[in-house]
Nucleic acid binder design. Sequence first.
DNA 1: CTATGATTTCAGTATCAACTGAAAGGATGG
DNA 2: CCATCCTTTCAGTTGATACTGAAATCATAG
Lengths: 192, 192
Amino acid sequence: MATGIGGGMGQMTVERQLRVAQDTFIRRWGEMGQTWGINRTMAEIHALLYVVGQPLCTDDVMDRLHISRGNASMSLRALCDWTIIRRMHRDGERREYFVSLGDVWEMFSIIAAERKKREMDPVLETIKQCRAMLEESALGADGAGEAEVKLTRERLAGMEEFMVVTNRIFQQFIGNAKSGLTRVVKVLLKAF
Amino acid sequence: MATGIGGGMGQMTVERQLRVAQDTFIRRWGEMGQTWGINRTMAEIHALLYVVGQPLCTDDVMDRLHISRGNASMSLRALCDWTIIRRMHRDGERREYFVSLGDVWEMFSIIAAERKKREMDPVLETIKQCRAMLEESALGADGAGEAEVKLTRERLAGMEEFMVVTNRIFQQFIGNAKSGLTRVVKVLLKAF
DNA sequence: CTATGATTTCAGTATCAACTGAAAGGATGG
DNA sequence: CCATCCTTTCAGTTGATACTGAAATCATAG
């Protein structure tokens, strides 16, 4: 009965068209996740929950994305651990539902905090250790290979400086939800 | 003959200690690369060239990282394509050498530009398409599933806003080498 | 306590990106 | 022009990671 009229979509129910739009987004989001070190399925599940904006149960997710129960269970748990989705119960229902956070800014803050902790902090720590290994006091005073040591020292110092500053920027994002972030951004954009 | 005296390092030549420090950094950098969607070997090669600060030839890289000629060749080419390392010739030598850019800020700008173009722009494009599919004009005016469509519209809009702003921030970094970037950062940090 | 339905776990399997090594393809010097 | 040395390519292999499905576990209602 209800048919779209524009955009070359031909006859399609509203439901069907909604489904297509959602699936398109989900697929693309999954692809992006992969290239940023996030497993495709997890990214897709999250995209699904985000874009539908409503609680879904495990079977909904399985059917929609064509994945196994095991995969769905483990991925949903991981997303819960990240705290970017939440478990939910419905009155009189036995099974669990899952909802995504609605605020993209908040989600990003959470993810940024976790990745900083897990991936940037250890690198910074390592760089400090490496620099310590190459301090004069640890090396003795002979001139052998001194030029090379100096070069490496400089490079490590340059990288450390970069990471310290990057960390600070991350910190800005982490400490601020939407309102704070848009303020950060306004400042940034106005200054240039 | 030359021995370190501090830090529990025991007897070690300066050369040996330099090597250890460099390898530690290289390994860590490779691990980090992986979790950010950059292949481990490429990250390691780049870390090596960066940290030694001197031109190395293919065989140097192979020996140092224990990788095959084919792998070295392809990875070095990819890094050249990204323009974060450069090919180099030495007078009277037949083989090619490779050097890393020395400025971390510049490297980061280059990488950010490329990843924005390859990974964020297409997502933004897709989101716009999805939103277009769900416009009133494309859907007809019936009320069926209208609430769900509205929800999805809002979610897509929220994500688009986020990505547009993120893109702008990337742009700030892309357009600025070290001096510009530290300025960006100063502004950011002073404002909070 | 038992029955029913939901969830988790994990050993086995599939998938795909990364890597190897040898052969083909340059380029330079004699 | 050939000989030598260096670089690139790519078919085949490896290894890491993700995924499945069925059994075990857990939770709730009766």
